[in-house]
Computed example of a mutant assay.
Amino acid sequence: MNRILSLCAGSLLLSGCASWFGAQESAQQTEPMVSDDPHKVNIRQYQGPKGADRSERDPSAALYVRQNQPGVDAFGAISGGTNYANRGALYQSKPLVKHVGAYVQNMAQDLISNMEYLSDKTPVGITHFALLDSDLQQTNLLGYQLAESFIHELHKFRIPVVDYKSTEYIRVTEQGDFILSRDYLELKEKAPLEYVLTGTLAKHQGGYLVNARILGMESKAVVASAQSLIPFYVVEALLPSDQQLTDGVKLRQGE
C-alpha cells in the first residue's frame, strides 16, 4: 500500500514540474527578446500570437521590415529599381521627380529678382554654359540643355529672347527639316542683342555647380546673377545621342 502511495505522489510531482516548465517556456515565447546590443535587432522580438499585428503596437517592427526587406525604400514603398540605359554604363536609380528644367526655373526666378536695366523691350541672347576649369571654350550636354531651358524660362517672364542660331531658310534634308544651325557662315553677322545670358559649370562633390549671369554686350556689366547646384543623378539622366562620353555627357569644344 505504501509503495502504491509513493508511486502516485511521484507521478503528481513530475506532472506538476512538467506543467510549470511548460508555462515558463510559453511565457518566454510570448515575451519579446531584447538584445544586449542596441544596434542589433532580433527578429524574434517581433514574433507574437498568431493573427496579431505587432507593427501597429511597435513602430520599431515596421522599421525593421523596411530596413531588411529587399525592394522596400525608407518610406515602406515597394521600389522597382528603374534602370536608365546610358550606353557606356547602366544608371540605376529611382524614377526622377525633377529634371534640369526645375533647377533652371529656380535660377530664372533669382535672375529676375535681382535684375537691373532689363525690361520687356530689351532683347536677350542665351549662350551655352562653359566648363569653368577649361579655357571657357568647352561645354557638354548639360551646358546645351541649360541654354535651352533658360530660353523657355525667360520667355515665360515676357523677356524678349533672340535665338541667333536660326537661319533665314528651312533646310529640308533626308534626316529632317531644320532651321537652326551652328555654322556661322549660315547665320547673320550681327544680331539685335543688348544683353546676353551666359554662365559656367563646375564639378562639385554632389553634382554640378551652375553660375548664371546676364551681361551687357557693350558695358560687360553684370546686371543679374544666380547660382544653383544640380545633383549628379539629375545630370546623369541626360542621355547623349552618340558614344563620345565624358562622365556621362558629351564634350563640345568651341571654335
Score class of each variant (00 low, 15 high):
G101V: 00
F21G: 06
D73P: 04
V210H: 03
L238K: 00
V235Y: 00
D135W: 01
R44P: 03
A221W: 01
G206N: 13
T127I: 04
L146H: 05
H204N: 15
M217Y: 15
L90C: 09
H128L: 12
L180V: 06
S166I: 09
R57S: 15
A89V: 09
A224P: 04
N68W: 07
I4D: 08
S181T: 10
A18L: 13
A18E: 05
T198W: 02
E255S: 15
V124E: 00
K190D: 15
S119Q: 05
R182Q: 14
V34F: 03
T30D: 07
N83T: 14
A202Q: 11
Y184A: 14
S11Q: 08
Q138T: 09
A147D: 02
H204G: 11
A52M: 12
L193Y: 01
D120V: 09
S6N: 10
K165Q: 09
I112F: 05
K220F: 10
Y103D: 01
G76R: 03
Y103L: 03
K156C: 10
L239D: 13
N68S: 07
N2F: 13
A212L: 01
L96Q: 06
Y117F: 09
D36I: 06
I214Q: 01
N114T: 04
S166H: 03
I112W: 02
E31Y: 07
L185M: 12
I78W: 12
Q92D: 05
E116A: 08
A108R: 00
K98P: 02
S15M: 13
L118N: 02
D58L: 10
I230S: 00
V41G: 02
S60C: 04
R252E: 11
N114D: 06
I43R: 06
G48Y: 00
G81E: 05
N211R: 06
K156W: 13
Q28P: 01
L197T: 02
T82V: 15
K94T: 15
A77R: 14
L13S: 10
G16H: 08
M107W: 01
Y169Q: 15
S149A: 14
R158W: 09
P192W: 00
H204M: 04
N211T: 12
A62S: 11
D58Q: 08
T122F: 05
I179D: 14
H39P: 01
S15D: 04
S55I: 03
D120N: 13
L193P: 00
Q92E: 11
Y46G: 01
N106K: 15
Q69D: 06
V222N: 09
N114R: 04
L90E: 12
L201C: 02
E174V: 05
N42M: 14
T246Y: 08
V124C: 03
Q28C: 07
N106G: 11
N86Y: 08
L63S: 08
H39Q: 12
V34I: 11
E25N: 12
Q205D: 14
S149Q: 14
F150A: 01
M217V: 15
E255H: 13
Q227C: 07
